[in-house]
């Protein structure tokens, strides 16, 4: 399976999915058309469980994201839930800056909704 890479801009995050069990989304996510931006990511993640190693670590290191992106993040996490159907484990590390309560609470919100191991990591 090919690596997926998307260079970050002032409005979109850097995405590095290497198919070797390391996935990272970092930066700012305020694209004008969130679904158009995240669609290739969803397609890649739909294929990923079949090719994934036994353990996957996903890093979310977001500075800021808009409402549409929050829906896309939920959909990404839902795609990661499917890894368990293939008997593969996944750990999501949700990074947030010290004192950034909003980002911490967002991590907790996702944690309460998604059946995936989410660890909150203070930077």
């Amino acid at each position: 399976m090919e690596k997926y890479y998307s260079e970050g801009t002032g409005r979109t995050p850097t995405i590095i999915f290497d198919a070797q069990g390391k996935l990272e989304i970092s930066g700012r996510s305020i694209p004008e058309n969130a679904i158009a931006f995240y669609n290739p990511v969803f397609e890649w993640l739909t294929e990923y469980p079949k090719h994934a190693p036994s353990h996957t670590e996903v890093i979310f290191n977001l500075e800021y994201f808009n409402t549409s992106s929050s829906k896309c993040i939920l959909d990404i996490l839902r795609k990661l839930e499917l890894l368990s159907e293939y008997d593969k484990s996944v750990l999501v590390k949700w990074h947030f800056d010290e004192g950034d309560e909003d980002m911490e609470e967002s991590g907790n919100d996702f944690k309460s909704l998604i059946n995936v191991n989410i660890e909150l990591v203070m930077k």
Binding site: T67, L74, D102
Partner: peptide
Amino acid sequence: LNDAKVITNISDRLQNR
């Protein structure tokens, strides 16, 4: 409904920010 609750919470925090 659960998604809507989370997205609303996130949106409110973003608006507040």
